[in-house]
Amino acid sequence: MTKEIRISGFGGQGVILTAYIIGKAASLYDGKESSLIQSFGPEARGSSCSAQLIISDEKILYPYIAGTDILVAMSQSALAKFFSEVKKDGVVIYENELVDAKNISTLGIPATRLSEEEFGKSFYSNVIMVGYITAVTGIIKLGSAEEAVRTSVPSHTVENNLKALETGYNFAKNHA
């Protein structure tokens, strides 16, 4: 099985780290293959930012995604840009207070507000999103996500990030 994932948003939202944590969880802790490519379009160092992640049971050869199984849109422009790539049975996950996607998806989470409410800043919205993606797609195991968070974020933020992961995960469970 191969899953092609696109994660996209503004620079500063932690888009790349979101993809990195999921890819790492799959590759290092779930025993799968994963390949992550940060998209550097001409605009990539500026405001918009996107990552392509492939998770597979087999060796990954072609490095880019051909169609999207899971699109994670952290911004309206990300949805506009990448929605057409989503496969027929693909899912769209979005930041539902930053992105209007209600007519196409029910998988919305106010990750930014949840981060602000819990931690007083929007800083953790990306890892909240990782928790939510983990819960709604089952693409990686929760334990692997925890391990990947633990080994990927600055040591003084591990505790909060793990809490953020749980927040996102629980949000999915409570709003199923």
Binding site: S27, E33, S35, L36, I37, Q38, F40, I60, P63
Partner: peptide, 10 residues
């Protein structure tokens, strides 16, 4: 090349 340079894997 750019692709290998910016590709993250195990």
């Amino acid at each position: 090349d750019e692709c290998i340079g910016h590709m993250t894997e195990k």
